[in-house]
Nucleic acid binder design. Structure first.
Lengths: 157, 157
DNA sequence: CTGTGGATGTTGAGCGCTCAACAAGTCAGG
DNA sequence: CCTGACTTGTTGAGCGCTCAACATCCACAG
């Protein structure tokens, strides 16, 4: 009773798979080459830089950077050893940890950003028409909402 | 002189990033849970199953599954230890290795496929309109071509 | 032939991610 | 209070990927 993909759907799916894979591999490689950090770490730095005082609680940072708590923990540990992030404990909740972006971290981000945006433009925006860019946003937000509504299993009722 | 992303472009880029990340994480998790293989391995099995005699040279398999030679080597080694793939050497080119999908491998693929397609439908196709699906293919193929034309650096001339 | 440049496939080190288990803290009901 | 359920963040094992180095083989110019 499986609703298999027909020929058209196959092509669409494989094109999507190939394009996204190539895009992210390329951007990751560029970032690794030019700034020596993986893209996920770059994203963490960005979110921190946007926050008031350039600091966020680990859980908030995890949410905003689409990261699991575990992944974030490992990542911040690594970034801390680079001197780009510093962790302090939270005053009102003793479980809490607050990640602060250091000046060195901000500088590293500032150094990496121009090259990265250039890459994003080159590989994503420039090849597309204005109409396609609008479509891409709508398609992406639709997918996002669909996925957030069905986490995986229904909440234990 | 960096052409930064404006507000709209930011939103588009982050939506795209988030959607693709969530989609692939979800599909990967489902495949891992139901079939105990990562998505990239699944793709290798698919490509092999489509080939004549269910066999392909490593280099051809690497191309078709969007994989680096190194990654494929590791992957096939793992799949071989599962008994799902068997390697034989190539008659006319002594460097060559040919990967064969075994009956066990085909069975494993057949068992995993229905659940996976279901996931792809659920998370990708079902939420989108027919028009969006067409748009998605065009956007993807455009990105693909743009990336294939500019590998990274110009060929050493 | 012979050598030289390119292709093929493998390997090991290093790294990031997932998953499950865990310690520590919070909070609400009895 | 205090107990039990939940939340927060961390940890370690296992695994897949990248990257660079490598052994092997092909193909072609001389």
């Amino acid at each position: 009773m499986t609703r298999w993909l027909d020929e058209d759907e196959q092509q669409t799916w494989r094109a999507f798979l190939g394009a996204t894979r190539l895009v992210f591999e390329q951007l990751d490689r560029e970032l690794q080459r030019d700034a020596a950090i993986p893209h996920t770490y770059y994203e963490i730095l960005v979110r921190l830089s946007e926050a008031p005082d350039r600091a966020l609680r680990m859980s908030a940072l995890a949410d905003r950077s689409q990261s699991s708590r575990s992944r974030l923990s490992h990542a911040v540990a690594r970034l801390e050893s680079n001197g780009w992030v510093r962790r302090t404990s939270c005053a009102d909740d003793k479980r809490g940890q607050i990640a602060h972006l250091t000046d060195e971290g901000f500088a590293a981000l500032a150094a990496a950003a121009p090259g990265h945006v250039e890459g994003v433009r080159k590989h994503v925006f420039d090849p597309l028409t204005d109409a396609q860019i609008v479509q891409l946003r709508e398609i992406s937000t639709t997918m996002l909402e669909a996925l957030k509504k069905q986490p995986d299993a229904p909440p234990c009722d």
